[in-house]
Simulated assay, not measured.
Amino acid sequence: MDDDRFRELITARVSRPAAIAEAAAKRRRPTSLLADHGRLMMIAADHPARGALAAGSRPFAMGDRVDLLDRLVLALSRPGVNGVLGTPDVLEDLLLLGALDDKVVIGSMNRGGLAGTVFELDDRFTAYDAQAIADAGFEGGKMLTRIDPNDPATVATLESCADAVSDLARHRLLAMVEPFISHRAEGRVRNELTADAMVLANAIAAGLGSTSAYTWLKVPIVDEMERAMAATTLPALILGGEVAEDQQATFANWQKALALPTVQGLVIGRSLLYPPGDDVAAAVDTAVGLL
């Protein structure tokens, strides 16, 4: 981002905050959730609001907002990329930069379970709600749904996510649910990435809310992916996870998962925004080529 564009962004936020709503109203909305290749290819950028700033070996990679925006704008400009997931601050920057025309925009909703905190599993809804997503003219909302059988905070998260699914459905907006079976160990919350855990998590997530008509799942790659995805008929997107040094192995796993009938695309963040070698365009193009 050049200095002039950066200054324009700051000036709009300081002097014309209504410019954000104006940009949202003018945004050209997509005619379908799926791109011409028949899949949904999304870039995720909701990590900073949860305090998860690391990407690979860089502990504060996502802490430079201008750099992050440059990477996002580049990724969203690549052919075949038709969606983005983010919190209000990120999506509003992208609106002001004019980067969201024809994109499927999903607002991230619960970011209160800050990474590495003692209250991480008490995942409060601190960002978008369904009404704000509808008012902005976006296509849906996403919620992280971590289920720890030994943590009483889980039930509050489940209730909040169920309410959000129902609220989004009332607006006929997509509800993207990202479920995990999670456990606190050595002061950290760890997600259980096994087929058994994902069968359980997917089954629970699919039943949240008063209807599943607008619910999609956001799921990680695990061994025996076929078993994990057989737990429900809901559409699903594969999430990218952490930055991996062996990107070819990662791409191969995504391609294998994309062959499953319920898998409708990819939602990838740091793996494409901060790839080994730092060639964002090449990493994004390779991922699109798997669809």
Results as ranks from 00 to 15, higher is better:
3 D>M: 08
4 D>F: 06
9 L>P: 00
9 L>W: 03
11 T>H: 13
11 T>I: 12
12 A>T: 03
18 A>M: 05
21 A>I: 06
24 A>T: 02
27 R>A: 03
27 R>P: 03
28 R>M: 12
29 R>Q: 13
31 T>I: 11
32 S>W: 05
32 S>V: 04
37 H>V: 03
43 I>Y: 04
43 I>E: 02
48 P>Q: 04
59 P>F: 04
66 V>H: 00
67 D>P: 00
72 L>I: 08
73 V>W: 05
76 L>K: 02
88 P>W: 01
88 P>T: 03
89 D>Q: 10
90 V>D: 02
91 L>A: 06
95 L>R: 07
99 A>S: 12
106 I>G: 03
116 G>K: 00
117 T>Y: 07
118 V>A: 13
121 L>G: 01
122 D>A: 11
122 D>Y: 04
127 A>C: 14
129 D>Q: 08
129 D>N: 14
130 A>P: 07
131 Q>N: 10
133 I>H: 01
138 F>W: 13
138 F>A: 02
153 A>Y: 00
154 T>L: 08
159 E>N: 15
159 E>R: 15
160 S>K: 09
161 C>K: 01
164 A>S: 13
165 V>C: 12
172 R>I: 07
173 L>M: 12
175 A>K: 01
178 E>W: 06
179 P>G: 08
180 F>T: 02
186 E>P: 02
187 G>M: 01
190 R>D: 04
190 R>F: 00
191 N>S: 13
191 N>G: 08
197 A>G: 11
199 V>K: 09
200 L>D: 09
205 A>M: 11
206 A>T: 12
206 A>Y: 06
207 G>R: 12
209 G>H: 01
222 V>L: 15
226 E>V: 15
228 A>I: 06
231 A>C: 14
233 T>G: 11
236 A>S: 13
237 L>H: 07
238 I>Y: 07
242 E>K: 10
246 D>Q: 09
247 Q>V: 13
248 Q>N: 14
251 F>V: 09
252 A>H: 15
253 N>D: 15
259 A>D: 15
260 L>V: 12
263 V>S: 06
265 G>V: 11
265 G>D: 08
267 V>E: 08
271 S>T: 13
271 S>C: 10
272 L>N: 05
274 Y>R: 02
277 G>Y: 10
279 D>P: 02
281 A>E: 15
282 A>C: 14
286 T>G: 05
288 V>A: 11
288 V>I: 15
